[in-house]
Amino acid sequence: MVKPRTFGYFFESAGKSLLRNSWMTLASISTVAVSLLVLGIFLVVAANINAVAANVEGQLQVTAHLATLSAAERGRLEAEIKAIPGVTDVRFVPQSEAWQRLLEWYGDNQDFLAGWEEENPLRDSFEIRADVSHRVPEVAAAVTVLAGVEEVLWGREIVEQLLAITRMMRLVGIGLMVALALAALFIIANTIRMAIFARRREIGIMRYIGATNWFIRWPFVIEGLVLGLLGGMMAASVLAWGYYLAVRALVQAIPFWPWVQPWPFLQQLALLLLSIGVVIGILGSGLSLRRYLDA
């Protein structure tokens, strides 16, 4: 077992080596930082695309046009609709409100509606929301068969297309993310491998002197950890700062767009990038050493 004070030596040795090989240290940290930054930027974009998709999906609803019902009948029907699995919100829209909406919709071009307001041709309706977007069709089917419901509108084709698009966006996003993460991993691991290759003679000397594999490995692993941590910190800082400024500007430019809010998203993102940096740093140096430690 290694004595505790020897760990002090490992840290000291890792620190000295990082300083003495300052160019290699700088190159490695920059590589880690740039790779993680690219990955981070993509994650930010992906999170925002996901937010848009979720926002669009969240607006999907089922509209049930009603026959002429008494208040009691309507109350009963509302209770029945609320009992359908997946239904989260049921809102009654009286025909007068529907008419108002129609007027607002046409804005300045509402002239052709003049004369209709007395005999409002629109019906009372319920607007129904589902907990998850893909349950909208199910909910619509269940509402259709209820007594008192004359017609159910849910934009079957639009909803189905929209769901297909959001699903595709997510899949492509995940695919790109995995590819990018692998590329970052490869680049970082390769940088560390080069750094270790440059020091293979040192490793050979340590072995002649009788250093055990773990004794050789520890300082390198600590170095990898520090490189990963510093690179991750750089990437996270640049990204957090950049995104914060970007969202501040964008919220003013496009106020109703569902931007992912910086908090706590950035905190999670920073933690993720730091963890990736540290894990790759440790694994990269630990594994790259193997070929110089065999036999």
Binding site: V2, K3, R5, T6, M206, I209, G210, A211, T212
Partner: peptide, 9 residues
């Protein structure tokens, strides 16, 4: 270093 390897004080 040769002494550090054998964990001398």
């Amino acid at each position: 270093f040769a002494m550090v390897v054998v964990e001398t004080a």
